[in-house]
């Protein structure tokens, strides 16, 4: 790699950044501009001539935004937590198998992600009804777990696999029972993959729609925010939807900003020993 970065790179990066940023910008305009400058115009301006909080305040008064958001938060933390609870032991176990077998298991796990969500969600929802999990936070979380678990197991497995096998042996030789080996040696060493797996699960759950819609469709008492958002859009409440969407991006942005230094490709491939 040359030391001097080609200025073209910056131009491309800037263009890409603008491209990705634009929808967010439109969202911002709709949420913070008076409606006469957005919905009132056929060709709305791309710059805010006037900023107001009325839209936000009205939206919060007119529809229940907080309920679905809180529910989404609950679901997302359950999904993230459960993913680690199941993914860590599973990843540990699979990492111990030979690559030939473990690769097959991983591929098998990802079958869930290869199928259209609806194909799986509908039969599952039937079981959930009989288990009284429909329209519950836990129900949504369990259904979404299906989506995030394969990737979680994969990431955690990569983490375990990147550790020298002798570290675990050494801990056992040093007199550590399995619990201490995990708590003091293994888990601290794969904290980055664990963190990444958690964030990815959390974010997947945060805007997951299909399973949430099928398991808990009732707005606003049971649904998560993507379902509520969809509901407002279909009920022709674009202002509320825009506000809602804007509010909903805040936690994701916070997460990404806080953990961005870990969100690098190398950690996803499991190369964490430096």
């Amino acid at each position: 790699m040359p030391n001097k970065t080609n200025p073209l790179i910056y131009i491309v990066v800037l263009a890409l950044a603008l491209l990705f940023f634009y929808p967010f910008w439109v969202l911002f305009l709709i949420a913070f501009e008076p409606t006469k400058l957005t919905f009132g115009l056929i060709y709305p301006l791309q710059f805010p001539l006037e900023i107001t909080l009325t839209n936000i305040v009205n939206s919060f008064n007119q529809v229940d935004l907080l309920g679905p958001l809180m529910r989404s938060l609950e679901v997302a933390f359950i999904v993230g937590g459960l993913a680690l609870l199941l993914g860590i032991p599973a990843g540990y176990g699979i990492a111990k198998l030979t690559a030939r077998i473990s690769n097959k298991i991983i591929a098998f796990l990802f079958i869930i992600n290869m199928m259209p969500g609806l194909v799986i969600a509908i039969p599952i929802s039937l079981y959930f009804y009989s288990a009284h999990l429909e329209n519950t936070v836990l129900g949504v979380a369990l259904a979404q777990e299906l989506v995030v678990l394969p990737l979680t197991v994969f990431i955690i497995m990569g983490g375990f696999r990147s550790l020298p096998r002798d570290l675990e042996n050494q801990a056992r030789v040093d007199g550590a029972p399995l619990s201490s080996t995990f708590a003091r040696v293994l888990l601290p060493l794969i904290r980055v993959p664990i963190l990444i797996a958690f964030i990815l699960s959390w974010m997947t759950s945060w805007d997951e729609f299909t399973y949430a819609f099928i398991v808990a469709p009732i707005v606003p008492t049971d649904s998560t925010f993507p379902v509520a958002l969809y509901n407002y859009v279909t009920r022709d409440l674009p202002l509320q939807s825009a506000t809602f969407a804007l509010v909903a991006t805040v936690p994701v942005i916070v997460l990404v900003v806080v953990f961005q230094k870990y969100l690098k490709g190398q950690y996803l491939s499991g190369g964490l020993i430096g």
Binding site: P164, D166, L167, Q170, R184, V185, P188, L189, I273
Partner: peptide
């Protein structure tokens, strides 16, 4: 003592 020492890097 393992060949690669297996020191706990954390």
């Amino acid at each position: 003592v393992f060949q690669n020492y297996a020191l706990y890097p954390n």
